[in-house]
């Protein structure tokens, strides 16, 4: 199974590389980051064993970490998005 996940990750990297050369305007970054998030999810779920984690505590910790990461990025983006010169 690990080799399968690894193959999917490699294919996703290739797609990211190919997609970067297609003109999509501002959606280029969105596509690249979307694929990156999908890959990161695969790594966390399978290589970091979150999927098969038996304890609920592990899942709680992952969700809490994601929540605080979102807070961090979200509040940073509120600053960036509301600057008059941007």
């Amino acid at each position: 199974m690990y080799f399968g996940i690894w193959a999917v990750l490699l294919v996703c990297t290739l797609i990211t590389y190919k997609a970067a050369f297609i003109e999509l305007g501002r959606f280029n970054a969105a596509v690249a980051l979307g694929i990156a998030t999908f890959k990161a999810t695969l790594v966390a779920l399978f290589f970091m064993h979150v999927w098969h984690a038996s304890e609920k505590l592990t899942k709680l910790v992952v969700i809490a970490a994601l929540f605080f990461l979102l807070l961090l990025l979200g509040l940073t983006m509120t600053d960036y998005a509301t600057r008059p010169w941007s």
Binding site: Y17, A20, A29
Partner: peptide, 10 residues
């Protein structure tokens, strides 16, 4: 990798 190497490559 996408943020530093592929942004604005299109």
């Amino acid at each position: 990798f996408p943020l530093l190497y592929l942004i604005d490559r299109h």
